[in-house]
Amino acid sequence: MTIMYTKDHEWVRADGDLYVVGISAHAAEQLGDVVFIELPEVGKTFAKGDDMAVVESVKAASDVYAPISGEIMEVNSAVVDEPAKINEDAMGAAWFIKMKPSNASEIEALMDEAAYKDFAENS
């Protein structure tokens, strides 16, 4: 299963007709212990790059941007209840939302694993 990344450290992977979105393990490590997360409501639509969610550590709040355009179909309430999951399993159990893309070709413009690894190491 291919995972793609944005320059703002979100990841996206296909799940049937939907795309699952989260933040990268690298981003979670940079943030430190996550203490609060705010996710969008199901049914809301976002354009690629819109503020979509907020992740907060003890020190600071960080915006999470929509990696692709689309509608929110599902949110991960488990990660809202237990934001520390983001530090434990950012790429897996701590996914944020599932989106129905309005333009699936947007995902092709994102970085693959190797490109993101290179980007994250040099940014």
């Binding site: 430190g32 212990d33 550590s57």
Partner: peptide, 10 residues
């Protein structure tokens, strides 16, 4: 130093 490897919370 803003934090050490232990992290702000710990």
């Amino acid at each position: 130093p803003v934090q050490y490897p232990l992290g702000v919370m710990k």
